[in-house]
Design a protein around this nucleic acid. Sequence first.
DNA 1: CAAGATTGACGTTTCAATCTTC
DNA 2: GAAGATTGAAACGTCAATCTTG
Lengths: 156, 156
Amino acid sequence: MQSTSRDGVGIPTAAQLHVWASFLRYHAQVVDLLEDELREEVGMPIAWYDVLAQLAAAPEGRLRMQELADAVVLSRSGLTRLVDRIESAGLVERASCPSDRRGTFATITDEGRARLEEARPVHRAGIARHFVAHLQRADIAALGDGFDALLRGIHH
Amino acid sequence: MQSTSRDGVGIPTAAQLHVWASFLRYHAQVVDLLEDELREEVGMPIAWYDVLAQLAAAPEGRLRMQELADAVVLSRSGLTRLVDRIESAGLVERASCPSDRRGTFATITDEGRARLEEARPVHRAGIARHFVAHLQRADIAALGDGFDALLRGIHH
DNA sequence: CAAGATTGACGTTTCAATCTTC
DNA sequence: GAAGATTGAAACGTCAATCTTG
């Protein structure tokens, strides 16, 4: 399998385009499926799970909005709205940062932790079933190396 | 690397969760990047490209709305609006199906084909640069097999 | 003036209800 | 009544402008 230009960054071959298409298709379907399962079984959107999991893993269960936005790969204003909704549900709280009053902390509440612990096994079981399980005959280490290489590449 | 339950569909290990996180993160970033490049260089959203490419590849340049929705992995109503916009731009046309008048064909226009041919090299070059190129040291065949296995798995 | 975050306006997506045709 | 597609209302994401603090 090779490209048409000498540096390997020319036109992708049909086989390479097929890998790309499979990648997109699989992503769309598996995310949809996990979203549906999480909503069905614990009534939580996957975006909420993402935010709660990031906060729960952070020291003192809190992060600056900026840090949180980076962690969940969302725009700043997008995160503002998202945290608005989660805050309305009582799962996070906002508090201004004492040392730099421009900053805002989002903090996970006790109820947020409780709901997260309820959702976590469901979500992880979904990942196990729809991702990990089907990779056992493939090479999960190669996939891991592949994505790490891809992520490194994308930062120029 | 192993799961905690005997059938391999228990709780994912930390390493497996890391592969999953890399997968999500890479997808978000690369799609964003390709979207930006396509908009910048040919002024076309990636969703439009997707629709036009599917239609161009179909016999007579047309597909039923239902088939098209499956091909691009989108909701039916989402596709209706999307095709509305593309039709307003003159790149596709609708026509009712003669044999089953419930059905609607979306057909790519000449202008649609022209714009697609303009966009295609840009988009494919992006795929080459941000996907294929970084996989050369990894094993692209393993990735391809991996996604095919994943796609097969997701259909139960 | 720059950084952190929010707001308002706009475009897009989704859900349920609808309309038409089989 | 079921399938194919569309529509209205609501939720969501994004962009530029804004407000506040450093």
